[in-house]
Design a protein around this nucleic acid. Structure first.
Lengths: 111, 111
DNA sequence: TAAATATATAAATGTACGTTTATATATTTA
DNA sequence: TAAATATATAAACGTACATTTATATATTTA
């Protein structure tokens, strides 16, 4: 029986790889903006490009990454290809992360 | 007045940079393991090295990154240097992320 | 079918990053 | 003060990745 340091470590055994993969998908500013821009409904690539003022190949590239990370789903309709967030709970997580990040920055001298 | 696409986008305006920074700090498997290993109390570098079976310079390097990301605090006691998680809410976030990641993987064919 | 539009892909490039190896610094002990 | 222990730092290396430029694919329209 493998030694357990504590219960918290146990509950994360073998999950850090998956967690790191998900975190990496969220670790780029432009990719985050793209993900959030499709978090409230389907949106075409060109619409994302227009809204975020990013180059079309860059948006396509990040959408491909988000799809590879299972965070968005794709749907074709005529000449347009629509992307949409798969699980809106990701947005809640990002909101929680933002609260923590704000606190960390505010108390960075104190801690 | 700048155009707002939707309320969600508004609530994240200018925060993606911070969010991406935090996510990047959590985007490496070994760094996550180190962070979680100091999430239930102070732990010395050598103890982390022993628990996680990682090289000492690698652990030191990642601890430096975690400190730069404001996620851990440092405390010296004799020859030992103890690290500790700053905000345990990070662990809750990681638990939530793990739930979502698990669901995404389970439904990856369905979505 | 030709032109126009929408999106994806490929190549190229610079940089960031994780890891290893080697060494330096700091603290305790003999 | 010398040796041993604990940790940090620096250099070196390979790789991953974000971005740009150029081009290919697919769909609609004239």
């Amino acid at each position: 029986m493998p030694r357990r340091i504590n219960s918290k470590a146990k509950s994360f055994d073998g999950k850090c790889q998956t967690l790191a993969f998900l975190a990496k998908a969220l670790s780029d500013e432009n990719r985050l903006r793209i993900l959030l821009s499709v978090s409230s409904g389907k949106k075409s690539v060109s619409r994302i490009v227009e809204d975020l003022q990013l180059s079309q190949p860059l948006v396509s590239h990040h959408l491909k990454e988000l799809k590879r990370s299972l965070l968005v789903r794709v749907e074709r309709s005529g000449p347009f290809i629509y992307y949409e967030i798969v699980d809106p709970r990701i947005v809640e997580i990002l909101e929680d992360m933002n609260v923590i990040a704000t606190d960390l920055l505010a108390n960075r001298t104190t801690f």
